[in-house]
Simulated assay, not measured.
Amino acid sequence: MKKIFTLLILSVISFGCSSDNSSENQVTPNEAMYFPPSDGSSTWDTKSISDLGWNQTAVQPLLDYLNLKHSKSFIILVNGRIVMENYFNGHTSTTPWYWASAGKTLTSTVTGIAEQEGLLNINNKVSDYLGTGWTSAPLAKENLITCKNLLTMTSGLNDALGDDVSPSNLQYVADANTRWAYHNVYVKLQDVVAQATGQTWTNYFNTKLRDKLGMTGGSWINNGDGLSVYWSTTRNMARFGLMELNKGRWNGNQVVNESYFTTATNTSQTINQSYGYLWWLNGKSSYHLPQSQLQIPGSIIPSGPTDMFMALGKNDQKIYVIPSKKMVVIRMGDAADNVNLALSDFDDVLWQKISALYQ
């Protein structure tokens, strides 16, 4: 709890510091979008700092900060091309690492794919797919919970009972759609997809998303409490970010339809403006943090671009997608400041140093 209040204080202190997103600071060269081969090969086009006209003297301070903050890897893509790719503390381009809650966005995306195939409807109640009794809430309250509530963190279930998502641990607190609370109950969407498709979650995920993007070798690993966490290389995380930058498209193939993508990466409910379908949204007028019901004024990352949407995971796993700059930024590693939450002041300082590259 002490960490939460520290984080809240840091967030409020940072409010009022805004990023400069004026047109003269756009960093998008006038060139076609690039996609690496989908066979998972190591081939990937690059673009140098000097080619972009960026500030070379800002590179080393950024790398020093990443190393100081226990990073394992860092990638910047612009128009799909690698501008920076750096590894730290013995990590390599072939070493897998966990996505933690950044992987929630994989579940969001695959749910959208299943819906576009006509296999499920996110507006249907979860019990249509899993049967009743998947929670310990009264039946009338359980039947209020739709798949969309799981996508938007508005299930109304108790978020203070830990990661266990067995029925006995999914307890009623409020009616669905009346309370925003960061909760691992979202993982039930994987069961919904499995039931709706008649396939295992892993098989459907691999066929419909992983393999289409060339995210070779990535896998879901059970962490021992009933939840599976995605592990992959940093480049595979960058591939997913690149597809999202392109509104669900990969090299001409619409993997998830643009309508779903647009809804997923915009405010999804009226309680937390900074949350979509398991995506965090920058540049909104207020936000909520995990494990808190407080509404905090301002943007989540004041120094970051206002159109940025983000996959954020425990111990500072990051996918930042910035459409206005045609940019994807990836960070994997250990907790930057011994704070295990998805959000911390690390994000704001990191974006100050990233912005220094092109401002």
Rank of each mutant, 00 (worst) to 15 (best):
I4L: 13
F5S: 07
T6N: 01
I9P: 00
V12R: 02
S14Y: 05
S14F: 02
S23G: 06
V27A: 09
A32Q: 12
G40N: 09
W44D: 04
W44C: 13
S48V: 04
L52S: 08
Q56C: 00
T57Q: 08
P61H: 04
L63T: 05
L63C: 00
L63K: 10
Y65F: 15
Y65P: 08
H70W: 00
S71Q: 05
I75E: 01
L77H: 02
I82Y: 03
M84I: 14
F88A: 02
H91M: 12
H91G: 05
P96C: 04
A100N: 02
S101I: 04
K104D: 07
T111L: 09
I113Y: 09
E115A: 12
G118M: 06
L119S: 13
N124R: 06
N124Y: 08
Y129C: 14
L130M: 12
G131A: 13
G131T: 12
G131F: 11
T132K: 14
L139W: 11
N143Y: 08
N143C: 13
I145F: 11
K148N: 15
N149I: 11
L150D: 11
L151P: 14
T152Q: 15
M153H: 11
T154D: 12
L157R: 15
D163G: 14
S168I: 12
S168K: 14
A174V: 06
D175W: 10
T178L: 03
V192T: 10
Q195W: 01
A196P: 09
T197I: 03
Q199W: 06
N203C: 00
N203D: 13
F205P: 00
N206S: 08
K208T: 12
G214K: 09
W220N: 09
V229F: 15
T233I: 11
R239Y: 04
L245K: 08
N246P: 05
G248Y: 05
G248S: 08
W250M: 03
Q254M: 05
Y260C: 04
A264Y: 10
N266G: 10
T267C: 02
Q269Y: 02
I271Q: 06
Q273G: 04
S274R: 01
G276V: 10
W279Y: 12
W279G: 06
W280A: 10
S285Q: 13
S286G: 02
Y287V: 08
H288A: 07
Q291L: 11
Q291F: 11
Q295C: 06
Q295I: 07
S299E: 06
I301A: 04
T306A: 04
M310N: 01
L312G: 00
I322E: 04
S324C: 01
K325N: 09
K325H: 11
M327Y: 01
M332S: 14
D334N: 15
A335E: 12
D337T: 03
D345Q: 11
D348R: 08
D348E: 12
L350N: 07
Q352N: 14
K353C: 10
I354A: 05
Q359V: 07
